[in-house]
Design a binder for these strands. Sequence first.
DNA 1: AACATCTACTAGAGCGCTCTAGTCACGAGC
DNA 2: GCTCGTGACTAGAGCGCTCTAGTAGATGTT
Lengths: 322, 322
Amino acid sequence: MEDVARLAGVSRALVSIVYRDAPGASDATRARVLAAGKELGYRPDHRARLLGRTRTRLLGVTFDVRAPFHGDLVEALYSAAEAAGYDLALSAVAPSRAEPRAVQSLLDYRCEALILLGPQLSPSALSALAESQPVISIGRNVRAAGVDVVRTDDVAGSRLAVEHLLSLGHTSILHIDGGKTPGATERRTGYRKAIRHAGFEAHVQPGGRTEADGADAAKTFLNEPPPVTAVTLFNDRAAMGFLDTIRQSPLEIPADLSVVGYDNTAIAASSHLNLTTVAQNTTALATQTITTAHARLTGTPPTSPVVIPPTLVPRCTTAPPR
Amino acid sequence: MEDVARLAGVSRALVSIVYRDAPGASDATRARVLAAGKELGYRPDHRARLLGRTRTRLLGVTFDVRAPFHGDLVEALYSAAEAAGYDLALSAVAPSRAEPRAVQSLLDYRCEALILLGPQLSPSALSALAESQPVISIGRNVRAAGVDVVRTDDVAGSRLAVEHLLSLGHTSILHIDGGKTPGATERRTGYRKAIRHAGFEAHVQPGGRTEADGADAAKTFLNEPPPVTAVTLFNDRAAMGFLDTIRQSPLEIPADLSVVGYDNTAIAASSHLNLTTVAQNTTALATQTITTAHARLTGTPPTSPVVIPPTLVPRCTTAPPR
DNA sequence: AACATCTACTAGAGCGCTCTAGTCACGAGC
DNA sequence: GCTCGTGACTAGAGCGCTCTAGTAGATGTT
């Protein structure tokens, strides 16, 4: 910075003014400083810049590197954060890198708030974190003091899936659940409510959130086929595994069995899978998350939880029963 | 820090010493300082700490949030970086966030080196970046001045796939390629060499890197089935899409058609897919990348390109031809 | 007793920025 | 002719840390 100032024949303060686009420099000087900066390959040091200010405008995000849906969400968060003048620091959660580890590294970078995608931490651990900075849980409806939640209305989402199947004429529908994954309880509940409301019986089979879980569920299903004509699954990944396995059996989809996923991941949308699914509104989730974080940071009490309505995306894995 | 020092009755410098685990503090004082820090919830500011030092020990990583293989690699990079005393800054590349954008944000954080997973930037753009700091391309064998490359020996990988099929008795093998994706040329070449070396004819069908590309390739394949008994695909994602579509046809896998993927992603490994595939050694790739970065940063000329041998993982999608 | 050598600690500069409080020149207004 | 306002610019402190140089006191050595 010193060098740039010298080359442009001005003070360091003026260089700062120019690079911040702040008022107080003539157009001629501005151009001269920028030219000097370019020549020397100068870039302001983001860290040093932040040091002096109280606000860092840095939001920390933990995400699971293996979850496609988290990828979609991260992308949406980037846009939303940028629009609100925030910067994002990513920290991956993976089998060899547990959530507390990911969170600690964000804390070291002085993030103003923590955005956790489907956190697996205990409510008490989350509350403890929330004592030092705002914490927002996306997707998991956790009840922990000080922790804000932004999530999809999963009860409504499951209901949408069931109602879609009912409207096609199905009366016997199975739900393969997500076990203990965040959101699994709500999706199960939504399914049960919708089925009972229609006057039919609920059938729930234990499942999980990975392709392997879906495939296992399909094997169990094929072993002793329950008398159902349709299945709703916890998410698209499980639905993929389920479909893969079912397709190796004589059962035709959707003729013999309709299948509905959840999340509307890019793979579900791709022409070969063409999975009927429930779409979470990632844009709205991201925007609301940033809004909530901003509110907390500026002292406005945010409305929490924020619940975003999902939508049904009918594709080719659902049809009227035979 | 000031507060901690006051509470513990010592100077700021001593607090620094204690938190850096540096010599020069008695055990008693050490304990007293840590206790004071804990009481006040003190965490050293990572940014300020780095300000004073020339080295930041921060490595910037760009990755594609949609590529499962990048997820595996990021995880391995975290471990390798930690072992070498480096920290990682992640920056995602996504449809709405192009690579130059992702790189810029890393530069703002004063990363000492740039690690780019399968970069799509032009060689000249990469060279320009390499002028200001070390740049390492993982996976893409780019020839650009100053840019180091760490990659899997993809020619050998494709050869492994072909030789595996040959050893099972296949003589007519199709390769569905990855188009312009980094690595696609090498994998195509490896296939061609191995086939010709065995005295058979090479058949290449254009493909791509996504599930949808694989599914499209399968449709083309089914439309006018070429006289082959086995297929090698550019990667696991394409293989997934391919398999999905083939399974909806009367063709049995592996009885009628053997299929080999590439990358050994978690999904390929999962019991329901059980895809025979070529495994890239992510641990070695990550370790070599960090080693290369470290060498560049400490002035030692690194050996570049680093080429890691892949291995074949035989699973259930390959069998002798009928 | 005089000196060297430790260990345990502190003062203060410096990292690359931003921000506050100025200075200075110039023109408008009375 | 004087003040006053304004635009363009600068000096220097301060952000939270680390590092160098140094001090004070205990211990060992001759």
